[in-house]
């Protein structure tokens, strides 16, 4: 078996379909400018459309056009809001495939770095078991919200972005950036579960969050250990983590803004070894994307243009 694989090589059964990662790449580079957002999304419309064909997202595309991806990301999930059910399914599906890729990433860290210290291997092996349980948990939670595996396309963007060839960068990307993002998303979902009296979701996600904090801590400790006598490597690992974080702000959907769709789980992250300085930096980084207001305006324009072009009555926007 070779060392290091590409994200295209992740094996899936026939239920899954792939989404090109271009939309995710695009979200990472969005400026805070309505026209620029509109222009970029119109350009990649066909790619986004292709990713929805044959999936449960197809009717959403047919109704709202390429902006539907922004609509699902930009607004917080609140009980009773229009489209909440679909967005919840999409989020659960997204987390499910994210856990799958986290499992695969942790496993590859065992095979790709045979010379790594034993304690590192122990941590990665433990993470394999944890992520395997998370996959099982989200398969069940997806079912719980009425969804099913394969109903949306899978973007392998997480694996692609985070699986660097240097173990210090790998743990910086996977364990600090991605697992950190998972903490933000889970904290947000736990709040949603509380609001909807969904004890099943609340409790199981809280256990998952506890595991993820441990994984972030593995990342914090191993970046420090791998880079302890090598300031250059430390700087590289830090920059790689920032770059991964930038890509996972989803065009500002995850940020420290009070009205952000997903808040930064500040306290949880501190518990897992993030310093105040790093968190300030993350907040600053997340603020670089478009504001929620910009996104809202761009969505309005994109949806109106799409519906006009396709002769769809505009009240469908609700």
């Amino acid at each position: 078996m070779k060392r290091f694989i590409e994200h295209e090589e992740l094996a899936r059964d026939r239920r899954f379909i792939r989404q090109q990662n271009v939309a995710a790449d695009l979200l990472a580079t969005l400026p805070d400018d309505v026209d620029a957002v509109v222009e970029l999304f119109e350009k990649v419309g066909p790619v986004i459309e292709a990713g929805t064909r044959g999936t449960a997202a197809e009717p959403l595309y047919d109704r709202f056009g390429p902006a539907f991806t922004l609509m699902t990301l930009n607004e917080p999930i609140r009980p009773g809001d229009p489209g909440t059910e679909d967005r919840l399914k999409m989020r659960m599906h997204g987390i499910f495939v994210g856990e799958l890729q986290a499992l695969e990433g942790a496993g590859r860290s065992l095979w790709d770095f045979p010379e790594a210290p034993w304690e590192f291997k122990m941590n990665m092996a433990r993470q394999c078991w944890d992520e395997a349980r998370h996959v099982q948990i989200f398969e069940k939670l997806l079912d719980h919200v009425g969804g099913e595996v394969g109903m949306y396309a899978e973007s392998t963007f997480l694996f692609e972005a985070a699986c660097a060839d240097d173990p210090a960068l790998r743990v910086a990307g996977v364990n600090r950036a991605l697992e950190g993002l998972a903490c933000d998303v889970f904290r947000d979902n736990i709040e949603y579960a509380k609001q909807t009296d969904d004890a099943l979701m609340e409790q199981s996600m809280d256990y998952v969050l506890a595991d993820e904090l441990t994984h972030v801590r593995f990342g914090s400790e191993w970046v420090a250990e791998f880079c302890k006598d090598d300031p250059e490597r430390l700087a590289k690992a830090r920059e790689f983590r920032r770059e991964t974080d930038r890509r996972f702000n989803f065009g500002g959907a995850r940020s420290a803004d009070k009205d952000a769709a997903i808040q930064i789980a500040w306290e949880d992250r501190k518990f897992a070894g993030f310093t105040d300085e790093e968190l300030e930096d993350l907040a600053q980084l997340s603020g670089e994307g478009p504001s929620r207001k910009t996104m809202k305006k761009a969505i309005e324009i994109l949806v109106a243009r799409f519906q006009e072009e396709h002769g769809i009555p505009s009240e469908a926007q609700s």
Partner: peptide, 11 residues
Amino acid sequence: MMMLGGWLATV
């Protein structure tokens, strides 16, 4: 356990 880790991604 290392090889099983490697295979997680390819099964």
